[in-house]
Design a binder for these strands. Structure first.
Lengths: 115, 115
DNA sequence: CCGTATCCAAAATGATACTG
DNA sequence: CAGTATCATTTTGGATACGG
């Protein structure tokens, strides 16, 4: 026996991964760019440090992002998408496309664009 | 002044609409088919009647689904997507596509397919 | 700079029983 | 059949202060 979750419907799987309050938003900002903790904080000011840390650790535990700590002073930590995390980009893009139509603006300039 | 929510990032808009625990799943099953309450219950057995009702009412309030009550005995209520609800299909499809790859199966037969 | 720790409030979900 | 009502519980989120 294993401990994998059983899903009745395939959309439950991605929802269980990125259903956290800020997880999809974090992934959005990490597309095509590596960010430090305080950069993420500026992009997502409504998340307290506690929440941001919590969601980042969960994403890391799920294998969707990497966390790289540089042993320097002052501390420096960088977050970026793993390949597995990148597999979710179509979902994030679909959310973003719909959102842009709905609220009539984009995140242009906030998120790095592909070359 | 209006009462629209302000979103910092466009993906927050769809998430606030379909972020409920069963909302995306409900939308999934309503794509291309009208379903009665007890049919939805069978597709989503993990949702209690209370939860299902609640999520359905919220989706209705958001304008994503319609609820049609037929004044017959025994009662008959049908749920289906509105046009606005259908605008979310690309998101649901993206979730589903990812989920199918991840868990290696589909919902074939459960959800009606387009002609 | 990058977090943790503690405590607390609020929101979401669940169990169970019941009704028109 | 299609829900409601009530109550309990769990989960989530936030405020604040502090530490390496």
């Amino acid at each position: 026996m294993n401990h994998e979750k059983i899903f009745n419907c395939p959309i439950e799987a991605p929802i269980s991964l990125i259903g956290g309050k800020y997880k999809a938003i974090i992934l959005f900002y990490l597309i095509n760019q590596t960010l430090r903790f305080n950069e993420l904080q500026k992009f997502i000011p409504q998340a307290t440090p506690k929440m941001l840390t919590q969601q980042l650790r969960e994403l890391e535990g799920e294998g969707l992002i990497t966390r790289t700590v540089y042993p320097v002073v002052p501390p420096k930590t960088e977050y970026s998408l793993t390949e597995f995390g990148e597999s979710l980009i179509p979902i994030v893009d679909a959310l973003c496309d719909w959102g842009k139509n709905y609220i009539g603006n984009g995140c242009s300039g906030l998120r790095a664009t592909p070359s």
